[in-house]
Write a protein that binds this DNA or RNA. Sequence first.
RNA 1: GUGGGUAUAGCUUAGUUGGUUAAAGCGCCAGUUUGUGGCACUGGAGACCGUCGGUUCGAAUCCGACUAUCCACCCCA
Length: 448
Amino acid sequence: MALITNAIKGTLDLLPKESCKTQYIEAAVREIAENYGFLEMRTPVFEHTELFQRSVGETTDVVQKEMYTFEDKGGRSITLRPEGTAGAARAFLEHGLFNDALPQKIYYLTSCYRYEKPQAGRLREFHQFGVESFGAGTPAADAEIISLAHAVFRYLGVQNLTLEINSIGCPECRKKFQEALKAYFESYREQLCDTCKSRLERNPMRILDCKSPVCSEIAAGAPKILDFLCDDCRAHFDAVQKYLQAMDIAFTVNPTIVRGLDYYTRTVFEFVSSEIGAQGTVCGGGRYDGLLEELGGKPMPACGFGMGIERLLLLMEAQGVPFPEPKKCDVYLVSMGEEAGLKAAALAEQLREEGLSAQFDTVGRGLKAQMKYADKLGAAYTVVLGDAELESRRVNLKNMRDGTQTELSLDDFVGAFQSIVLREALAALDTSDLDEADISTILGGVQN
RNA sequence: GUGGGUAUAGCUUAGUUGGUUAAAGCGCCAGUUUGUGGCACUGGAGACCGUCGGUUCGAAUCCGACUAUCCACCCCA
């Protein structure tokens, strides 16, 4: 059969067997973000194109060649969001959230779209977990979001990530730095690679992380941003590092980190892995004190980060990090005959009302096939329902792990099964390695 | 946008110097057990060998173009 079409280049289908992993990551980041006091914000997938031009920056690659931009039927220029900060900032201003107590700490978990050539860790539709701390200008705020990202990796058991931080200063000190940089590279113009020659005009800071051997050698002797920071920016950057040290978060200062989005000021950082191919940045972010004003709001500091869900998943799989088992079927109701089929459906209904996972045959399989299917589902128990059971009002509950059967009353099946499941759950609780302190904590919790 | 690799069943792959019904494992369905899953054995379904064109008596195999996909550059999450 010829398929009508295939998935669009750079997009991924998340199949049932895989989706539980992503759900696990999503649940983890939500819980951690909320523990840090961040609340979810959801904004539309598309925005006015101008929003991204103004926030991300006209000259950036993202705006110049990677946006999904189209005209809607009303003649508006619309763009699928290439990142999450712009929409969050827009909504923050539009709804006057700056009138509430600051900082406003929000997070999002959304899809983003960039027209890029796909490769390992890079998709045209990808998903980002991001946080924004609006109205927080102190180094403590920078450190708090870095700590949040760090906590996510720790919680999920991800290892071997390096945290690299840098300061790209405020517009004033960056301007001085860029002039010095331009003057420096100008004297080496002829030796630079072609892309760096054009960078020299557009964004000389980019030359700093060029991979070409010649350029990187020249770049090694280039002026350093950290030498150009004004007193305020210098003090801010020093304080961020002090906070990170106080929170026991390891980092390295990497003066070549330059974020590709125009709105960044002062602190920038990346969590980088070498285990998932060339696109190793799993999380990137920083401070963007000028963004809200740029979008028409009052001047207000802010900082945030974006974390790539697919890259994080790639990394977890590369490291063999364990994922929780997906919820399995508690009981499969095998039925033979029309009457028994009705009874199975009715029982499943009641079991599900009690919060149990029950399934029954919906494709007309025979008994053996139903047993086999139950086994594939990983059903903990099966019950066979046939004329004999309907007649005697007795059923055999089969434990699929050890094969043992228990006879139960059909009329009281739901209650009896529920108590079996409960008793099993209690028995599964391993209390052997709890000490006195643990027990009193638990008891305290129960009393409350 | 620029390079390089790859394309055979749902998945992972084999396929000899071009040669006649394209092979295996896993998965799926069924049987060996007429009311009980896993293990084993047996059988079955499932592939226009990415597409189009060329060379040839003959192409999954050689050549070309296109498409898709993967990896890298660029850039970023």
